[in-house]
Simulated assay, not measured.
Amino acid sequence: MSDESNLYDEAIERIDELVQDVIQTCDEVADKNHYEKEWVLDRFRDRFNKAKRIND
Rank of each mutant, 00 (worst) to 15 (best):
I15F: 10
D56G: 01
R47A: 15
N33I: 06
T25H: 12
H34M: 10
I23L: 14
V22K: 04
E28T: 09
K37V: 13
D42T: 14
M1S: 11
N49V: 12
I54K: 06
C26V: 07
I23V: 15
N49T: 12
R47Y: 11
S5G: 04
A30N: 06
L7I: 06
E36C: 09
L18Q: 06
E17N: 11
Q24Y: 09
R47G: 06
V40G: 02
W39M: 11
E4M: 09
E38T: 12
L7R: 06
I23S: 04
A30L: 08
C26P: 02
V19M: 11
R14A: 11
V40W: 03
I15H: 05
T25W: 10
S2D: 08
E38V: 09
D9Y: 01
M1H: 07
I54T: 04
W39K: 11
A51Y: 01
N55R: 07
H34I: 08
E13F: 10
D21P: 00
E38L: 13
L41T: 03
D42V: 13
K50R: 13
R47N: 14
D56P: 00
R43I: 15
A30E: 02
M1F: 07
D46F: 08
D9F: 02
V29N: 01
A30W: 01
A30K: 01
A51E: 10
F44C: 07
D46A: 10
E17L: 13
S5H: 05
E13D: 14
